[in-house]
Amino acid sequence: MSNLTPEKPSNNEDDYFAREEIEAKRKLALQQTQETAALQREELKKLHFMKCPKCGMDLQTLKQGNVELESCFNCHGVWLDAGELGEVMKQHGHEGGGKVMGAILNLFKRS
């Protein structure tokens, strides 16, 4: 009686398939992490979009020339998007930057 056993694959082949499986699982985990992060960003945006960062109340958009400022009527905070401060300064003749605070305060003086 001969002792015929099927040939076992080499260790190198086993290692190759094990590495491939690990890599596939790593890619899947990375993809799931990215999808979860994107969903969390969307949820946070829904919670915080147009909310005052100081008091949490709704922000209102006020138009000043061609600039839209976000203002909170509860705590009186004013928020500018990137580049808007420069635009406000230009509109009010304060391009030099020396009177920045004056230009901002002039915008919101109460009559």
Rank of each mutant, 00 (worst) to 15 (best):
1 M>Q: 10
53 P>I: 15
63 K>A: 07
76 H>Y: 02
9 P>N: 03
36 T>R: 15
71 S>W: 01
66 N>T: 09
3 N>S: 10
30 L>H: 08
33 T>M: 03
26 R>W: 09
94 H>F: 15
100 V>H: 02
51 K>S: 05
57 M>E: 15
39 L>F: 03
27 K>V: 13
35 E>L: 12
107 L>N: 02
51 K>H: 06
9 P>D: 06
11 N>D: 08
57 M>C: 14
62 L>Q: 03
38 A>R: 13
72 C>L: 09
36 T>M: 07
104 I>N: 01
73 F>R: 05
15 D>M: 05
68 E>F: 05
71 S>D: 00
82 A>T: 15
19 R>G: 07
74 N>R: 14
25 K>S: 14
66 N>Q: 06
26 R>H: 04
33 T>Q: 08
49 F>D: 13
54 K>N: 07
20 E>T: 10
10 S>F: 04
62 L>A: 03
21 E>S: 13
40 Q>T: 13
60 Q>W: 05
57 M>V: 06
8 K>T: 08
6 P>K: 12
59 L>G: 04
12 N>A: 13
9 P>G: 00
48 H>E: 10
6 P>F: 10
85 L>V: 09
88 V>K: 03
10 S>C: 01
55 C>A: 06
33 T>K: 08
52 C>E: 00
10 S>I: 01
76 H>D: 03
25 K>R: 15
49 F>T: 09
5 T>Q: 12
102 G>E: 12
3 N>W: 11
15 D>V: 05
17 F>D: 02
56 G>D: 04
107 L>M: 10
68 E>W: 02
78 V>F: 08
75 C>S: 03
60 Q>L: 15
89 M>R: 14
10 S>G: 08
13 E>Q: 09
66 N>R: 14
24 A>S: 09
107 L>Y: 05
89 M>W: 01
35 E>W: 01
71 S>P: 00
98 G>I: 05
78 V>N: 13
13 E>D: 02
47 L>P: 01
110 R>N: 02
36 T>S: 08
62 L>G: 00
2 S>Q: 15
42 E>D: 05
10 S>K: 10
29 A>M: 12
104 I>D: 00
45 K>F: 08
81 D>F: 01
80 L>G: 04
108 F>W: 12
73 F>I: 06
65 G>A: 09
74 N>L: 12
98 G>M: 14
73 F>V: 01
11 N>L: 10
60 Q>S: 14
61 T>D: 07
78 V>L: 07
57 M>F: 11
90 K>Q: 07
22 I>V: 07
13 E>V: 11
10 S>R: 08
43 E>A: 15
48 H>A: 05
54 K>F: 04
22 I>D: 04
65 G>N: 02
16 Y>T: 11
54 K>C: 10
